[in-house]
Design a protein around this nucleic acid. Structure first.
Length: 256
DNA sequence: ATGGTGGCGCGGCCA
């Protein structure tokens, strides 16, 4: 069994005790973290290694930052979309045995019409081109992370409220579909067709208590891996803790 | 009503 998870922790240093407890409980084989918000020099490597995980990371000061925790050591590490290098540490790809893991923190986009929004769309276009070659080279690939895109109406508590926003408008949903169409599946939708199942809730307005959320964190898998996917679930438990991340983990399991 | 909350880091940006 292969267990793959993703969690936007919104500061690794703040969430380290929660991560420790969660790893002990869930024991994933591969975990992609986003918004670690820590430089590589300050990364709590020893804390994570003491939990029995190897760790690969690409961080920066204050913003962004990605990491992959694994049972096996990483090889073939990439920290940028080839040909689309930026200062922003949002990409970490590595190989673990026969599995290629691509961990993403997709740009939020701020607001439609902004420079950040334009960057989000260009970033997604470059990502899609690159992932075609990644899939061509790796039959067993998982693409996980905070995509900052809710794929369809079921994934948004109120589509009317979000329909023109950067997380759900037609352009970003089309970009998400274009990404899936290169040969991926949304593992969550292999097992559940219900709406109202979210992975992120705004800290404000008691959004979690009222379930005013979005499903924007995803575990996508290559066609071959999709055939072996036995489960995908959103683990709401960490979002209920004191001082939580605004995101909660998504976990997929594969019969490998 | 451009609010509300949280992280970084110590003023303002970002989500």
């Amino acid at each position: 069994m292969l267990k793959v998870a993703t969690w936007n922790v919104n500061s690794l240093r703040v969430r380290l005790p929660q991560l420790r407890d969660w790893l002990t409980a869930e024991q994933p084989d591969l975990l992609g973290l986003q918004e670690t918000k820590v430089t590589d020099a300050d990364f709590p490597r020893a804390d994570i290694e003491s939990l029995g995980y190897a760790v690969t990371f690409a961080g920066q000061k204050s913003y962004n930052g990605v990491a992959i925790l694994s049972r096996q050591p990483a090889t073939e590490i990439l920290v940028d979309i080839p040909g689309f290098a930026t200062e922003e540490r949002r990409v970490l790809a590595a190989t673990f045995g026969t599995v290629r893991m691509i961990n993403l923190y997709v740009p939020n986009g701020s607001e439609v019409g902004s420079e950040k929004y334009d960057f989000k769309l260009r970033w997604l276009a470059a990502l899609t081109l690159w992932l075609k070659s990644e899939l061509a080279g790796h039959a067993h690939a998982v693409v996980v992370g905070d995509f900052n895109i809710a794929p369809d109406e079921r994934d948004v508590h109120d589509p009317e409220v979000w329909k023109d926003g950067v997380l759900f408008n037609a352009a970003v949903r089309s970009a998400f579909q274009g990404l899936v169409d290169i040969g991926l599946c949304d593992t969550f939708r292999l097992h559940s067709q219900e709406g109202g199942q979210f992975s992120w809730w705004d800290y404000r307005m008691a959004a979690f208590r009222r379930n005013l959320g979005l499903r924007i964190d995803h575990v996508l898998a290559s066609s071959h891996l999709c055939k072996t996917c036995t489960a995908c679930r959103i683990d709401k438990a960490p979002r209920k803790l004191e001082r939580p991340s605004d995101h909660t983990p998504v976990i997929a399991e594969f019969n490998l």
